[in-house]
Amino acid sequence: MQCMKAWVYGKVQGVGYRLFCRRRARELGVTGHAINLPDGRVEVLLCGTEDALSSMIDALHQGPHFAQVAGVDVERIALGGAEVPTDFVTG
């Protein structure tokens, strides 16, 4: 299982972006979280197979209908056993 952290910026708060992430992640079998940051970005933690993560990153670039994604910064991260989330949550 691989993990990534992504920071999504643009018009991504107040438009259903986190719920969009949760729905798509659950469809793909990806675990993690999507949380709003004080600076207007959304932080997204993703853990899953390489194919699922690739599909999820593509989805992050699209977002829901009312979002206007200006960009997505992605970084691979290493998480150990107990650190890997078992579900996808929003905060």
Rank of each mutant, 00 (worst) to 15 (best):
D87C: 06
N36E: 08
G63L: 02
M56Q: 06
A6D: 09
G80N: 15
D87R: 14
R76D: 15
I57C: 06
A59D: 12
G48W: 00
P85T: 11
A25F: 01
C47L: 07
R41G: 10
G40N: 03
E83N: 00
R26K: 15
L46W: 01
L53V: 01
V69D: 04
T49A: 11
V72P: 03
Y9V: 04
L19Y: 15
T86V: 14
V69M: 08
R22W: 04
I57P: 08
Y17C: 02
R26C: 12
L79W: 09
I57F: 09
Y17G: 05
P38D: 04
L46E: 06
A82Y: 14
L60D: 09
G91K: 06
K5D: 10
V15M: 07
S54M: 07
H33T: 08
T49Y: 07
E27H: 02
M4K: 12
H61A: 13
D73P: 02
I77W: 11
R23D: 09
A67T: 04
L45E: 13
M4T: 09
I35P: 02
Q62M: 10
I57M: 10
P38T: 05
T86F: 10
M4S: 11
Q13M: 04
V74Q: 11
A70R: 13
R23P: 04
A70G: 14
R76T: 15
V74H: 07
K11H: 12
R26Y: 02
L79G: 08
D39R: 02
A25G: 06
E43D: 07
E43C: 09
T90K: 13
D87I: 12
P85F: 13
G29I: 04
H65V: 00
V69I: 11
E27S: 09
G40T: 05
H33D: 05
A34Q: 00
E50K: 15
S55A: 10
A59R: 01
K5H: 12
G10A: 10
I77G: 11
T86G: 13
W7S: 13
E50L: 11
C21E: 03
Q2T: 07
M1W: 05
A78L: 12
M1N: 10
A82N: 13
H61Q: 14
R24W: 14
G16L: 02
A25Q: 05
L53F: 05
I77P: 14
L28M: 14
A59F: 05
I35N: 14
V89K: 14
C21A: 09
Y9H: 12
P38N: 06
E43W: 10
V30F: 04
F66M: 00
G91M: 00
G40R: 07
